[in-house]
């Protein structure tokens, strides 16, 4: 009797194994979550030092247009205006999204509504291949094809917002297209059938029914593309010219947050103002990425297909 009770009271080897499995898989999960938090914490705490340690005012940083870290103005204030880079980043992001969206939506509609067979056979692999091309290769092509082309047509050096926009356009095209395809495929078939049954043409069905039903998802696709454009570093750095000036034309050298980070992080000493302002730029990148994330979530919640 006693023995039997003992037997049932003891944890079986199976139970132990189950516990072991659950624990290690949970540890792996918590490890990933803690990475996310350390990134947010360490980058942001470095970035905030510009304001706390070095006493730069937020207005000077976000609105200042003179970026010469290491030098001071006549009034003795450090010249760390990040506005040129912020403007550069937003300009290339918005322009490339404006350029890529019609193409991405067009291709997505073509693949789902007009000719699914050809779409699957030719466009799908093309999109997958475009995703796979490394960003430095895009940068290299930008440098050897797009920049000289712009130089010939518009004069100047060829480096600038226009070159960066064209490179980013090709880079975000596949991201936006494949997400748009998924959204369009999720529109229930009977929406289309109902519309056709009422005598609508194919285009009327697409424009008045399918696109309306899919609009939250399509918006998310565009924002994903923008997030990618905003965070792209090397391809942009190779073609934008990297002059920390507020761009006054599309074909003069400019810079983005990522391009200045890429260029200068290696030339500054940790803990100095010159270095900490770079971390502030990285913090802006980080928060913009969070912002894009929250935005897509919000749209997803608001416009969930019912």
């Amino acid at each position: 009797m006693e023995e039997t009770v003992q037997h049932f009271k003891k944890r079986s080897p199976k139970r132990k194994q189950e516990r072991f499995g659950k624990t290690i898989s949970l540890v792996a999960t918590i490890f990933i979550v803690s990475i996310v938090f350390s990134i947010l914490f360490f980058v942001a705490s470095r970035g905030l030092r510009t304001f706390t340690e070095h006493g730069v005012s937020a207005i000077d940083f976000f609105a200042g247009t003179a970026w010469r870290p290491g030098e001071v103005s006549d009034a003795g204030e450090p010249l760390v205006g990040a506005f040129p880079m912020i403007a550069g980043s937003f300009l290339v992001t918005i322009f490339s999204a404006l350029l890529a969206t019609p193409f991405a939506l067009g291709a997505a509609i073509f693949m789902t509504e007009i000719s699914p067979k050809t779409g699957k056979k030719y466009l799908q692999p093309v999109i997958e291949l475009l995703v796979g091309i490394p960003s430095v290769v895009y940068g290299f092509i930008g440098l050897t094809v797009i920049v000289p082309f712009i130089r010939q047509i518009f004069g100047g050096t060829g480096f600038g917002v226009l070159a960066a926009t064209l490179v980013l356009f090709v880079m975000i095209l596949p991201t936006t297209t494949s997400m748009a395809v998924d959204t369009l495929n999720a529109v229930p078939r009977y929406y289309r059938e109902a519309s056709f049954a009422m005598g609508a043409t194919r285009w009327q069905t697409i424009y008045k029914v399918v696109l309306r039903a899919a609009s939250p998802g399509l918006l998310t696709a565009v924002i994903f593309g923008m997030a990618r454009a905003f965070g792209e570093a090397l391809a942009v750095q190779m073609v934008i010219g990297n002059a920390a000036l507020v761009p006054d034309s599309l074909t003069t050298p400019a810079s983005t947050l990522t391009s200045i980070l890429t260029m200068n992080m290696g030339n500054t000493v940790l803990g100095t103002l010159e270095n900490d302002v770079l971390w502030s730029l990285a913090t802006i990148l980080l928060f913009m990425s969070l912002f894009f994330n929250i935005l897509t979530r919000w749209i997803g919640k608001k416009g969930a297909m019912k």
């Binding site: 996310v36 938090f37 990134i39 980058v43 965070g231 570093a233 980070l261 992080m265 990425s289 994330n293």
Partner: peptide
Amino acid sequence: VRTAIEVLSSLPSIVVGLFGFLM
């Protein structure tokens, strides 16, 4: 947890690189 993983996947790779440098 899912949100955190999604945030991580949307971080620009240059930020990941800079964090790697720091850490």
